[in-house]
């Protein structure tokens, strides 16, 4: 070692060149490249694994997000019907003839129910999107919720396309009108529900009114019986016909609670009107 260092120090570069040549015989071109190639493979390989792992994790995370809507029951019914083995499903009645296939009309009904559910979901998405966007901008909700909404939106798009295709398979051009029909079904449902809600009150109102009227009649009779001892208000009010008496009397008790406030209100409003 010492020797060689000495020599390099003292002698010219000529000797080092000879040394080098003596220790390392010339390698082929490809062996020289192994090191950089190895380096590159390791580099690219690690980058690739990292990116795939990362992406996979992201996808998993997205998949783990709770879906926006509950399970689509109408869709499940429809698809179950499509995949149903009719002879098996209709085995309830043994003696009767079995169905060779699920009747088209049943499938159509199920498809319409599916379209109806879709319409309701689309409407829900449409109404909640701007609100959620607003909240997101203010930072009131996390990005996760927004991602869920976007995913639900994409799924609904696919779902609508699927329904249109199915409808077209049943009848030409039905796909163009099935969602119009479904929309009307939705509106009609709402309409009927609001009617039912209002008409529901009728029974209670009616019993209340019967009771009230009976009470008032009894009161009136009492008043007539004890004409002389009638209260002052009674005298004031029985000015017009019998009908009117019932009318005005009926207003009496109800006003007791909020009489004063109402007076103020009416005065204020009258002033405004005049």
């Amino acid at each position: 070692m010492d020797n060689s260092t000495n020599s390099t120090n003292s002698s010219s570069s000529n000797s080092t060149y000879e040394n080098w040549q003596a220790q390392q015989p010339p390698k082929s071109f490809w062996t020289n490249l192994t090191l950089p190639i190895l380096y590159l493979t390791i580099l690219i390989g690690s980058l690739y694994t990292f990116s795939t792992l990362y992406r996979k994790r992201q996808v998993n995370k997205a998949a783990k997000l709770e879906s926006w809507f509950p399970p689509h029951q109408a869709r499940d019914v429809y698809l179950s019907l499509l995949h149903l083995d009719p002879s098996e499903a209709s085995e309830g009645a043994d003696g009767e003839k079995k169905l060779s296939k699920v009747p088209d009309s049943v499938l159509k009904a199920a498809l319409m129910r599916r379209a109806l559910e879709d319409i309701q979901r689309i409407m829900q998405l449409r109404t909640s999107k701007p609100a959620l966007q607003n909240l997101l901008q203010r930072g009131s909700v996390g990005d996760e919720l927004w991602q869920r909404l976007l995913r639900a939106e994409k799924e609904m798009e696919e779902e609508v396309k699927d329904v249109v295709n199915e409808a077209n398979a049943f009848a030409p051009n039905w796909g163009q009108t099935i969602f119009q029909s479904a929309n009307e079904m939705h509106q009609n449902d709402l309409l009927r529900k609001s009617i039912a809600d209002i008409q529901e009150k009728l029974a209670a109102d009616k019993t209340w009114w019967e009771g009230r009227r009976a009470g008032m009649q009894a009161e009136l009779l009492q008043d007539l019986d004890t004409d002389g001892k009638a209260s002052e208000t009674g005298q004031k009010k029985t000015g017009g016909s019998d009908d009117d008496a019932v009318l005005v009397e009926s207003g009496g008790p109800a006003q007791d609670q909020g009489g004063a406030g109402a007076k103020k209100n009416t005065k204020g409003k009258k002033g405004g009107g005049a």
Binding site: P71, S80, H83, L84, S90, G92, A93, L99
Partner: peptide, 22 residues
Amino acid sequence: MDSVEVFHQLPLTIDPSTKALA
């Protein structure tokens, strides 16, 4: 919601004469 290709098979039966689902 599940992905587009997936659905849940439901236990359905059809009455052969009335064609009513159950």
